Computed example of a mutant assay.
Amino acid sequence: LDFGSGPSPVLATILERDYGFDMDIYDLFFAPNKVFSGKKYHLITSTEVFEHLGDPLEYFKLLAGCLEDDGLLSIMTLFHPLDDQEFLDWYYMRDMSHISFYTSDTMKVISGIAGLDLVFTDNRRYTSFRLKR
C-alpha cells in the first residue's frame, strides 16, 4: 500500500515494476477510495505524508491494523532540529500544511502506543516499523 500516494504514485510504480510488488494506492485527494479497508499488507509506505496529519497516532494505529504479521511500515518525513532557533528557522516548518513534526524519539514513543516496534531509523527522515511480537 502506498498511503498518501499523491497525484502521481511514483513509488508504487517503481515497487511494482522493479520489485514485483502488487501495490494499492490511497490518497485523500487523488485516490480517495479506501482500498486498504479489510486488507493486510506486507509493505506499507508513506512518503512525505505524516507531517500533514493532525492526529498521527490515529493513522499509526490504522496502518498497524493493515500490516501482515511480518509486514513493514516505512515512513518518510523530515525530522525536526532539536535546537529551538534552528527549528524556528527551519524551512519545513514554514510550509503551512506541515502541522506535525517528529524525531526518532517521537517515532519510538508513537510506535509503542500503536503496537509497533521501530526497527530502523536514520535519525533524519526514514523510519520503519513492524508489529510488536
Results as ranks from 00 to 15, higher is better:
residue 60 F to W: 00
residue 16 E to Q: 15
residue 91 Y to F: 11
residue 131 L to N: 06
residue 129 F to S: 02
residue 7 P to L: 15
residue 99 I to L: 11
residue 90 W to Q: 09
residue 72 L to S: 06
residue 68 E to K: 13
residue 26 Y to D: 03
residue 133 R to E: 15
residue 42 H to L: 04
residue 19 Y to C: 02
residue 72 L to C: 10
residue 7 P to T: 15
residue 71 G to K: 04
residue 67 L to D: 02
residue 92 Y to S: 01
residue 116 L to H: 04
residue 110 I to S: 04
residue 20 G to F: 01
residue 129 F to M: 01
residue 106 T to S: 11
residue 57 L to M: 10
residue 78 L to E: 14
residue 26 Y to T: 02
residue 44 I to H: 03
residue 108 K to E: 11
residue 107 M to S: 03
residue 118 L to T: 12
residue 6 G to A: 05
residue 51 E to N: 08
residue 77 T to S: 14
residue 60 F to G: 02
residue 38 G to Y: 08
residue 73 L to H: 03
residue 30 F to Q: 08
residue 25 I to E: 00
residue 37 S to P: 01
residue 87 F to T: 01
residue 90 W to S: 08
residue 92 Y to W: 10
residue 100 S to K: 05
residue 96 M to R: 06
residue 52 H to F: 07
residue 49 V to E: 12
residue 110 I to R: 03
residue 13 T to I: 09
residue 108 K to V: 05
residue 53 L to A: 13
residue 94 R to K: 13
residue 68 E to T: 08
residue 46 S to R: 06
residue 67 L to V: 02
residue 85 Q to N: 10
residue 52 H to L: 07
residue 63 L to V: 12
residue 117 D to L: 10
residue 38 G to M: 08
residue 47 T to S: 15
residue 5 S to D: 00
residue 54 G to W: 06
residue 28 L to G: 13
residue 96 M to E: 14
residue 125 R to E: 11
residue 121 T to I: 14
residue 55 D to W: 08
residue 112 G to F: 06
residue 41 Y to G: 06
residue 3 F to Y: 15
residue 21 F to T: 04
residue 21 F to G: 01
residue 114 A to R: 03
residue 25 I to W: 00
residue 97 S to Y: 05
residue 15 L to N: 01
residue 30 F to C: 09
residue 59 Y to E: 10
residue 65 G to F: 04
residue 66 C to L: 05
residue 70 D to Q: 02
residue 76 M to Y: 09
residue 108 K to C: 04
residue 133 R to P: 12
residue 60 F to E: 03
residue 89 D to S: 10
residue 23 M to I: 01
residue 38 G to K: 10
residue 100 S to I: 11
residue 132 K to W: 03
residue 21 F to A: 05
residue 3 F to L: 03
residue 42 H to K: 13
residue 106 T to N: 13
residue 119 V to P: 14
residue 32 P to C: 08
residue 125 R to A: 10
residue 46 S to F: 07
residue 40 K to F: 07
residue 85 Q to I: 15
residue 70 D to V: 00
residue 121 T to E: 15
residue 109 V to A: 11
residue 40 K to H: 12
residue 95 D to Q: 07
residue 129 F to H: 01
residue 57 L to F: 04
residue 25 I to G: 02
residue 22 D to H: 10
residue 5 S to Y: 00
residue 55 D to L: 12
residue 125 R to Y: 12
residue 86 E to R: 10
residue 13 T to H: 09
residue 9 P to N: 05
residue 97 S to H: 12
residue 10 V to L: 11
residue 112 G to R: 11
residue 54 G to V: 06
residue 34 K to N: 08
residue 36 F to H: 12
residue 16 E to V: 02
residue 47 T to P: 02
residue 11 L to M: 12
residue 79 F to Q: 05
residue 95 D to M: 04
residue 98 H to R: 06
residue 78 L to V: 13
residue 84 D to G: 06
residue 28 L to D: 15
residue 64 A to M: 01
residue 17 R to G: 02
residue 130 R to S: 09
residue 114 A to V: 11
residue 87 F to E: 00
residue 47 T to H: 09
